[in-house]
C-alpha cells in the first residue's frame, strides 16, 4: 500500500477561512461548526478527486452531500474519519479540524471513535451476536466493566430505535436480522462509543421504503445529540432529513446552503439542473 500523504497547510494565508461569499463558507445556520474542512484535496494517485473543498459541519444538525456519481462525495466523507487513506494509493491534503484539532495529527482510532461511520451495505460482524456487535467498539476501546458495557449496549440500541425489536434475542446472530435492522444495528454500534459526528454513506440504498423511513426517523432523533453527515443519491431523502445541503460536481463544491434554499431556489444554475433532474 502506498504511503498516505498528508500535507497540512501551514501558511497563514491558507489557514484563513475562505472569504464570505465563497460556496464553502456560506453562513452556518443551526449551530456553531463542529468540524471545519479547509481546502481539502484528495485522490488516488492518478490525480485529485476532490479539488479543494471548504465547508463547515454545524453542530447538532444533518448535512447532506449530494451530487452525481463520481463527484467525490463518498471520497469526501471518507476523508472526514481518515477512511480514505486506507485505500491503496490514496492521497489527501488540506485541513480538517474537529473541535479545533487537526484530524490528520490525531490517532486514527481516537478519531474514528469521535467520527463514526455507517456504510451503504449493512456490515454487522457476521460471527458475532447482536449484543457483541454493539459492544465491539467499547471492548476495542478497553471498556471492561460489564455493567457499563451492558448499559451502553442498551442505550445505543434504544438510540438506534432497535431495542424493542431485539431485546429478547441479544445473543442471537446479527445476520439473523432484516436488512433495515442490520443497518440500525450498525448505527447502534457506531453510537456505542458516543461519537460527535456520524458519517452515513448511502445508508438506505439497500433498504425498502419502510426500513428507509425508520432510518430517517432515527436520523431526526439523533441530531438532537450529534452531527450527521449523510451522502445520498436520493434527493428527496436529502431534502427530508437535512438542514444543510452541499452539492458536489466533479470534485468541486458548487453550492452549500440551507437545504430549503437548495431545493426551492438554488443560487447556481448547475445545482438547479441537478436537483430538477436535468443532468446527472
Amino acid at each position: 500500500m502506498k504511503m498516505t500523504m498528508i500535507e497540512p497547510i501551514e501558511t497563514e494565508k491558507s489557514l484563513r477561512r475562505p472569504e464570505v461569499g465563497a460556496a464553502g463558507s456560506a453562513p452556518v445556520s443551526g449551530g456553531k461548526p463542529v468540524m471545519d474542512v479547509r481546502e481539502l484535496r484528495a485522490g488516488y494517485g492518478s490525480g485529485d478527486v476532490l479539488h479543494g473543498i471548504s465547508l463547515a459541519v454545524p453542530e447538532r444538525s444533518v448535512t447532506a452531500i449530494i451530487g452525481p456519481s463520481g463527484c467525490g462525495k463518498s471520497t469526501f466523507i471518507r476523508c472526514l474519519n481518515r477512511m480514505h487513506e486506507v485505500a491503496p494509493g490514496a492521497e489527501c491534503r488540506g485541513q480538517v479540524l474537529l473541535g479545533g484539532r487537526d484530524i490528520f495529527a490525531m490517532d486514527a482510532v481516537e478519531l474514528r471513535r469521535e467520527v463514526g461511520m455507517v456504510f451503504q451495505k449493512p456490515n454487522p460482524f457476521p460471527t458475532m451476536s447482536i449484543y457483541k456487535n454493539v459492544a465491539a467498539g467499547l471492548t476495542l476501546n478497553g471498556v471492561r466493566d460489564k455493567a457499563v458495557v451492558r448499559g451502553r449496549v442498551e442505550e445505543s440500541l434504544r438510540g438506534a430505535a432497535l431495542w424493542d425489536e431485539v431485546k429478547d434475542r441479544l445473543d442471537g446472530p446479527a445476520t439473523g436480522l432484516s436488512g433495515g435492522q442490520q443497518q440500525r444495528l450498525c448505527i447502534a454500534r457506531a453510537l456505542a462509543v458516543e461519537p460527535k459526528i456520524l458519517l452515513l454513506d448511502e445508508p438506505c440504498s439497500a433498504l425498502d421504503p419502510s426500513a428507509t423511513a425508520r432510518v430517517e426517523e432515527l436520523i431526526h432523533a439523533l441530531r438532537k445529540r450529534l452531527s450527521i453527515v449523510i451522502v445520498t443519491h436520493n434527493m428527496q431523502q436529502a431534502a427530508r432529513v437535512s438542514q444543510r445541503t452541499a452539492f458536489f460536481l466533479m470534485g468541486e463544491l458548487v453550492e452549500y446552503d440551507d437545504t430549503r434554499k437548495i431545493f426551492t431556489n438554488p443560487s447556481d444554475k448547475r445545482t438547479e439542473d441537478y436537483v430538477t433532474g436535468r443532468f446527472g
Partner: peptide, 10 residues
C-alpha cells in the same frame, strides 16, 4: 435573475 448571477464553485 439567477441566470445573470450564478454562484461559483469553491
Amino acid at each position: 435573475t439567477r441566470a445573470a448571477a450564478p454562484k461559483s464553485g469553491s
